[in-house]
């Protein structure tokens, strides 16, 4: 009984961290989405310069550890005169990181649209931006939903890394609790449980959205009917 009482006692303190975790994650995800759309489309560009820039971005981010990216932005950038507070630095690092992964999701989502869809739209006299806006994007976004939610869940978990630069999010607050209570077992168990609940709920919502916005009549991989 006592451990549960302890967890209940520290819960309000941890939940303040949940708020920061969610804010950091959702803002970074949103900024990452904008970056991802731009970089994902850029990676399909015929323009060599645009293609190389976006590919370099994606490859560098995906080829280096997130922890190093966070440390670099918080401790490294001041050397260039860019001083960010921990929260901003954390959001910047997570956004840039997530943008690279979302770029790949966007690219794959667009490439999954059959060539015939584009041809049909063009043959009706649509301009290229109209083909993109009315035919490719709505279908591509549906295809991207599962991967994007997966990315959001990953991002929520990875956001615990910004605790190292002192952002008082969930993990950091767990560390505070351990520091004064010396009870890492109950504390980290509670922290883990909270992460699990957030991520599990997100996946469930995604499942629902996927079915809600599925294209009627289309067979989906992983559909429960198959």
């Amino acid at each position: 009984m006592e451990p549960i009482l302890f967890i209940l006692k520290i819960l309000p303190f941890l939940l303040k961290g949940v708020k920061i975790t969610l804010i950091v994650s959702f803002i970074s995800f949103a900024i990452g989405f904008v970056l991802g759309i731009m970089a994902g489309i850029a990676r399909l560009s015929d323009n060599r310069l645009i293609y190389s820039l976006s590919s370099t971005y994606v490859e560098i981010i995906r080829g280096t550890p997130l922890l190093v990216q966070i440390l670099f932005i918080y401790f490294g950038l001041p050397r260039l005169g860019i001083n960010l507070d921990p929260l901003t630095a954390g959001i910047v690092a997570l956004s840039i990181n997530s943008g690279a992964y979302q770029a790949e999701i966007v690219r794959a989502g667009i490439q999954s649209i059959p060539r015939g869809q584009v041809e049909a739209a063009l043959s009706l006299g649509m301009k290229e931006w109209q083909v993109f806006r009315y035919v490719i994007l709505p279908q591509a976004v549906r295809n991207m939903v599962p991967a994007l939610v997966n990315e959001l869940v990953t991002l929520i978990k990875d956001s615990s890394l910004v605790s190292v630069i002192g952002v008082a999010e969930l993990t950091r607050r767990g560390e505070y609790v351990v520091a004064w209570s010396f009870r890492p077992f109950e504390t980290y168990l509670a922290v883990a449980l909270i992460y699990f609940i957030i991520c599990f709920t997100s996946s469930k919502i995604s499942r629902y959205l996927e079915e809600r916005f599925a294209i009627p009549g289309m067979m989906r991989r992983g559909s429960r009917w198959l």
Binding site: G116, A120, A121, S123, L124, Y134, P138, Q139, R142, I215
Partner: peptide, 30 residues
């Protein structure tokens, strides 16, 4: 292209749009 109709072997209707929207969308945007 606006003046030439094209029909494909594999139909290529837009699966995310209702039948009526498949016809109405190009009328509106084109």
């Amino acid at each position: 292209r606006r003046r030439i109709g094209f029909v494909f072997q594999s139909f290529n209707l837009f699966p995310h749009l209702k039948v009526i929207d498949n016809i109405a969308l190009p009328l509106r945007v084109v």
